[in-house]
Design a protein around this nucleic acid. Structure first.
Lengths: 331, 331
DNA sequence: ATGAAAGCGCTAACAG
DNA sequence: CTGTTAGCGCTTTCAT
């Protein structure tokens, strides 16, 4: 009964195998010439002792960044960000990198804290859904760490976003094509938010393209589903109410569905930005402008890896296409 | 134009502040007595240089584990696991720990790989939703690293699960109380899965308690929503079809909803295990046995932290309560 | 083909 | 109150 022993080190292996530490190091890294017999012996001891090289010690000595990628998300309850994290993890694993996960809660101070901790770990790259404007991020990451803004743009670094504007335009255009002339916009709050702004612009563009007015009275905002439900009801109570609603995010869509469901109204069309898992089983099925969060994450990872590989071109923005998912009424 | 300079080290700070490295270290760690004037001077230099202590170097020297917690999930697309990760992150942040995130994809080999990488980083604890039986995990974590199984039990370590059986029993009992005598069970695959087994047991218990038979004919399994839809239709086509369905997970619920929706049947009751975001807006609203994934994660983190704090009691299993969310039909 | 010594950035253990 | 020395586990020189 030995209790919990100290983890074996490279030197332990060296001693047992009767070689020098450097030789063990060589075997482990497959570098330099090593006699086949020696290698066998070393490998045997490594296996017997269950030795695992200490990655931190290695990083320290080699001086390079650690084999982690920092990912900072506003929250994880939202499936969108979960899927995004999955995309990052998968894209990064092939390179032997591990994801360090942090939550900002949408708060700049916490974001700064998390980023600080990541930088202290010498993360090799930083992928961040910026909580604020991202100014502090740009400063922090000046230290030669590739930075990629996710989902929303920021200053002085690469950025990956969905085609919010074009997607919204396509969605609203579909409602227009179905004959609607007054289409309400149910947006996020605060109204200054990047994604909300872009999607609202798309709404305007689609209406303008059809020669329709885009009165502010048809624009409402809410942060929660409950608030969105009230906002939707308010829109429908207008003297000239919309005949269709464009819900620019999941909460807005949920609120709109609640409003329509509870008031029993089946004469108002609905289309949402960001697809819902149960959209297909709703009555009527809900059409949506679907994003691809996993691809968003994977793209950001790819961008960061390119920077690690020496890409020194000016910061660029990549746009991930959205897809209009039409779900006709059931027979 | 300096390009990217070397990150400043503790010695750089010491030199600029005209003190020894140890003094800077003391200031940074708030340990030992330091003259106020000296501390100010050091702090000023730290700020000016933008110095951040290298956490890896510190870990190496102190010999203790790294300030990370490894979390291994089967997938991140599933909101359940996203929320779980959020719970872990939040519980662990207070202790200054960061989450290392890995995906096993439900594959034991990949799981072993990820766990190996985490161990090499000297993660201070391991929280794993085990892909297989967890035998390899128990062995790997023997190395004095606290291990907690999440969502499903495993050998030789702590474990946190939902009250699958009692939750399912309560859900089915509710259907029974509503007068149903033939209640179909729509489960996960493979049938040997822990959560499926437990939920099926709950189904049986509820029926037995009411003196009702629990024929195998009423039990069906599926892995995807599409397959669950077919399975549900098959159950409903039975000579003595069920009048209610108990969907034991999200995919099963989705499939059942599709089956009922597409076939236009409104005479079959449905209740699901694991709540759906849009359950409230469905027609009729869907009642569910809700899990609390964030609490599941937080509980696992708490268990692991206790072990880090020296708790050496035998492994224990904590059960996180489920909650029956009844959603009456709308007026 | 192998090894000895030095050192990465930091802190523990002792001075003074 | 502050500094010196040594050394964590590993890799980089530079020898042999």
């Amino acid at each position: 009964m030995s209790g919990m022993e100290r983890r074996p080190t490279l030197h332990d292996v060296a001693r047992e195998a009767r070689v020098s530490a450097k030789t063990v190091s060589r075997v482990l890294n497959g570098e330099g010439p090593v006699a086949a017999a020696t290698r066998e012996r070393v490998l045997a001891v490594v296996a017997r002792l269950g030795f695992r090289p200490n990655l931190m010690a290695r990083s320290i000595r080699t001086g390079g960044p650690d084999s982690t990628v920092g990912l900072v998300l506003p929250e994880l309850g939202n499936p969108f960000f979960g899927a995004l994290a999955g995309g990052v993890e998968e894209a990064v694993r092939g390179r032997g990198l591990t994801v360090l996960l942090g939550c900002s809660g949408g708060d700049r101070a916490r974001e700064a804290e998390v980023v600080g901790a990541f930088l202290a770990r010498r993360t090799s790259a930083l992928l961040v859904v910026p909580a604020g404007g991202g100014e502090t991020l740009a400063a922090a990451a000046g230290a030669g760490v590739p930075l990629v803004y996710l989902d929303r743009p920021g200053p002085g670094a690469d950025c990956v976003v969905s085609s919010n504007r074009a997607g919204a335009r396509a969605g609203v255009a579909h409602l227009v094509a179905a004959g609607h002339r007054r289409i309400g916009f149910l947006g996020d709050l605060p109204a200054s938010m990047y994604t909300r702004r872009e999607r609202l612009a798309g709404w305007r563009e689609a209406l303008a393209a059809a020669g329709l007015p885009a009165p502010d009275a048809l624009v409402a905002g809410a942060r929660t589903a409950a608030a969105a439900e009230r906002a939707a009801l308010a829109l429908l109570a207008l003297p000239e109410p919309p005949t269709a609603l464009f819900a620019s995010n999941v909460n807005a869509a949920t609120g709109a569905l609640l409003a329509l469901g509870r008031s029993g109204r089946r004469d108002v069309a609905l289309l949402s930005f960001d697809d819902l898992p149960l959209a297909e089983v709703l009555e009527p099925p809900l059409s949506a402008v679907a994003q691809d969060p996993a691809l968003l994450g994977a793209t950001a990872a790819r961008l960061a890896l390119a920077r690690l590989d020496g890409d020194a071109t000016p910061p660029r923005t990549e746009t991930v296409a959205t897809r209009l998912v039409l779900r006709p009424a059931r027979p």
